[in-house]
Amino acid sequence: MPGSESIESWDYTLYIPNDLRAVTVCRRTLRLILTMHGLIGLVDTAELLATELVSNAVRHTKGPAALRVRRAPEGVVWIGAWDTDPAPPDPPRPLEQVGEAEEEGRGLGLVTACADYWGWRPSARFGDQGKYVWCELVAA
């Protein structure tokens, strides 16, 4: 049937140490994944969102972390950062309340502003309790 092509679904997980340099590794890996799957139009926004999620996971916890990126058959790209802290993230601050010179406090505000949906859920990896903070982008 014309126009009913199925969308390729896939799922990648990159496990990282608690090291701020891992944020760059995640960002570059995400760029490669999206480019190789023909989703270059999502790269800039996805990189920004993944950078915020992964840097929060690395900065605010002491254990390992992970970046997970997947595409659902419906076309949604899901980006999640797992960390070892089971506590929910702080509520996002509206971007207009964050000063331009402030280095912290805007991460989830950016996620809220740029993603189609976002949220968090408890999860376990490496035998530890933790959480995923995630967001979704609809691929056009």
Rank of each mutant, 00 (worst) to 15 (best):
M1E: 14
P2L: 04
P2R: 07
G3Y: 07
E5S: 05
S6H: 12
S6G: 15
I7L: 10
I7W: 05
W10S: 04
W10L: 02
D11I: 01
D11K: 02
T13E: 15
L14V: 15
L14G: 05
Y15F: 09
Y15G: 05
Y15Q: 07
Y15E: 14
L20N: 08
R21L: 12
R21P: 04
A22L: 02
V23K: 00
V23G: 06
V23P: 06
C26T: 03
R28S: 13
R28Y: 13
T29G: 10
I33F: 10
I33E: 07
I33M: 09
I33R: 00
L34K: 02
H37S: 12
I40Y: 02
I40N: 06
I40S: 13
V43W: 03
V43A: 10
L48M: 11
L48P: 00
A50K: 01
A50I: 00
A50N: 08
T51G: 15
T51H: 09
T51K: 01
T51V: 10
S55H: 03
A57I: 08
A57T: 12
V58N: 00
K62Y: 06
K62A: 14
K62W: 07
G63M: 07
P64I: 01
A65H: 03
A66N: 05
R70Q: 11
R70W: 08
R71D: 10
A72S: 14
E74L: 05
G75N: 07
G75L: 07
V76D: 14
V77K: 04
V77A: 13
I79A: 09
G80D: 12
D83G: 13
A87P: 02
D90Q: 11
P91N: 05
R93T: 13
P94Q: 09
P94S: 09
E96T: 09
V98E: 11
G99C: 07
E100S: 12
E104T: 11
G105R: 04
R106N: 06
R106C: 08
R106M: 03
L110Y: 10
L110C: 12
L110E: 10
A115I: 03
W118Y: 13
W118A: 06
G119L: 04
W120H: 13
W120N: 05
W120Q: 03
R121A: 15
P122H: 08
A124H: 12
R125L: 14
R125K: 04
F126M: 07
G127H: 07
K131M: 11
Y132E: 11
Y132K: 00
V133K: 01
W134D: 03
W134K: 01
E136S: 15
E136R: 10
V138E: 10
